[in-house]
Write a protein that binds this DNA or RNA. Structure first.
Lengths: 197, 197
DNA sequence: ATCCCCATGTAATTTGTTACATGATTGA
DNA sequence: TCAATCATGTAACAAATTACATGGGGAT
């Protein structure tokens, strides 16, 4: 399920230009999928070349013309196929967690900064999802409700985990905090760590 | 915080060869960071060239020689700098959620497959984390405990959400299930969808 | 017999991000 | 007046995955 296919999916809910599609991505997909113009515009060009969408140019005064894309029957079929056969991936790449693994090597102030930053992001995500949910009416597709709920729950739980467990990282007895990196730590604990991982 | 830096971090907990480092990644980082040999071996070569690690070849009988890497003082300092200054990202790319957004366009059997697959992955993640936690002793760094707990909680909550909300997607009245894609859906709902997103 | 583990690497390919290039309109 | 929004696209770059290439040892 690449960006090309997702653009097709977006267009199955209504005509749009590249700019619109980006906005749609940002509206609901933002928390689990991102796409920039550098991906979307080439994707639309390829979809057009493959006959999966059609493109009509709408001139505007004072602005560049809109290129409005519409999905074709072939495109609809192909998207249906993709939904029926693709096995979806779920990739997380969290430098945040990777860094916290090395919490010992950071001081308390730095750790607090990292945790507060992440908390802010999570709160913002919760607020954003809540805002779009409130603007919904009865006809919103179940899929949208499901993924929005999913995002909201995960963001809330992640924030709660940070709040209830941050003391593990920051309430460290003074002596344990690393301060003289060179002298004591140079050679001692090599080769004996496999058990800790 | 790229793979190069993370290899450096891994080596700050003990000497290792590329193969070992990959195993370490898989042991605990697997749920939020992945790295293949194609990333790790070049990273180690670059770290060596930059003087951040040293490499000593250990011949073995019947196997290719191990190239055991050790972090240098410069490497340790540089890693400390990275921890102190890098602002970490947290990127999620979930084709799973993206596809479920279009749940209307899938049949119940397919949805059940997708949900069951994801549930299995999440249960497996929980089990894996529980296993490594049980093998731990008192000296495990707090960072490792924190990230393991984080992963365990998120996996559990995600699984719970799927179980308690899957009926939204699969208990659909017969009539609503899409069956004749071409005829009814060709043109009707174009241009009126902005409000639903 | 066959598969997995050990152990190294390179090269091609795919994929996505960032920067560049342009420019009028609208609201603060 | 300054930033943001609308609107398109290309080109360079960065990064990671995948495939290729090699090969003995040990377990089932």
């Amino acid at each position: 399920m690449d960006i090309k296919t997702l653009c097709l999916g977006m267009l199955s809910y209504g005509d749009a230009c590249g700019y619109d599609i980006k906005k749609r991505f940002e509206a609901l997909f933002r928390h689990f999928y991102s796409a920039g113009y550098g991906s979307i515009y080439p994707a639309l060009a390829e979809l057009t070349a493959a006959g999966l969408v059609t493109c009509r140019a709408v001139p505007q005064d004072g602005r560049p013309e809109r290129k409005v894309y519409r999905i074709t029957e072939l495109g609809r079929r192909q998207f249906g196929d993709a939904l029926a056969t693709t096995q979806p991936q779920h990739k997380l790449r969290s430098e945040f967690l990777a860094m916290l693994y090395f919490a010992e090597l950071m001081d308390t102030a730095r750790l607090n900064d990292l945790l507060d930053d992440r908390l802010r992001q999570l709160r913002e995500a919760e607020a954003h999802i809540a805002a779009i949910q409130q603007a919904w009416n009865d006809e919103v597709p179940v899929g949208a409700r499901f993924v929005a709920g999913f995002g909201a729950v995960l963001a809330r739980v992640a924030a709660e985990y940070i709040e209830t467990h941050r003391h593990m990282l920051t309430n460290v007895p003074e002596s344990t905090v690393a301060d003289s990196p060179a002298t004591e730590r140079a050679t001692p604990q090599h080769e004996l760590i496999e058990s800790r991982i």
